[in-house]
Amino acid sequence: MLKIKDLHASINGKEILKGINLEVKPGEVHALMGQYGAGKSTLSNVLVGHPAYEVTKGSVTYNGKDLLAMSPEDRAHEGLFLSFQHPVEIPGVSMVNFMRAAVNEHRKYKGLSALTASEFLKLMREKRAIVELDNKLANRSVNEGFSGGEKKRNEIFQMAMLEPTFAILDETDSGLDVDALRVVAEGFNKLRTPETSALVITHYHRLLDYIKPDIVHVLYQGRIVKTAGPELAQEIESRGFDWIKREVE
């Protein structure tokens, strides 16, 4: 489904990703761990096409297509979704208008007609229920004045609306209390199908208790330095990263 080969990327002339290799097959969940500043968010941003990053080397294919050649919006239409580590506040743009535009552009890409107002509102209601997003939030401007936890919940709500085939969750667990974490993670699981895959970025094992990864990677200084089964996440939880760093060095 997603194949990353020797990916190098930089921001403001500074190289952050230094040769990433990663393959995710349909239905798989991969966890990506690593210390602050390792380049995890950089990788997510590069995959969704953030214009601030420059890919200097390597390739990414997505369902057989050259992902790096696509516009960010087409990547989204092709099923790529990023739950941002820091979701942006957009004052003055209502959640409803924002989501309507997004859903209808997805539909247009698939050759479907736009939803009617009542169909759309019904869809909003159904999907809100999955992550228990308060109706009040859905009526406000996008993320404006949302708490950290509400923003993360809103990310998964948007994911529910757009039904992506490949989701990247960039520290979706941070800012969530224990109960919210359960709701959001279970919501995420409800949205999964045997064909959908995910890359889950986290510092903590507790998220992976809900969203069980097939494979765990450790990113260190722009490279994946260790790949193993789910037990690796457990080990990192108890021992930290130092032993991995020592292995590398």
């Binding site: 969704v48 096409g49 953030h50 214009p51 601030a52 516009s71 960010p72 919006e73 990547r75 989204a76 239409h77 979704f81 990023l82 941002f84 979701p87 942006v88 506040e89 957009i90 004052p91 003055g92 743009v93 208008n97 924002f98 535009a101 997004a102 552009e105 997805h106 890409y109 401007s141 996008v142 948007q158 757009l162």
Partner: peptide, 29 residues
């Protein structure tokens, strides 16, 4: 706001439409 633009594009909204939404929001008040 470039970040807001990108956020919308990641959700599948075209750049042109995203710009319109932001401009429209700007004069909203």
């Amino acid at each position: 706001d470039e970040n807001a633009l990108f956020y919308m594009r990641q959700r599948g909204i075209s750049e042109r439409e995203a710009r319109l939404l932001l401009m429209f929001a700007f004069v909203g008040d």
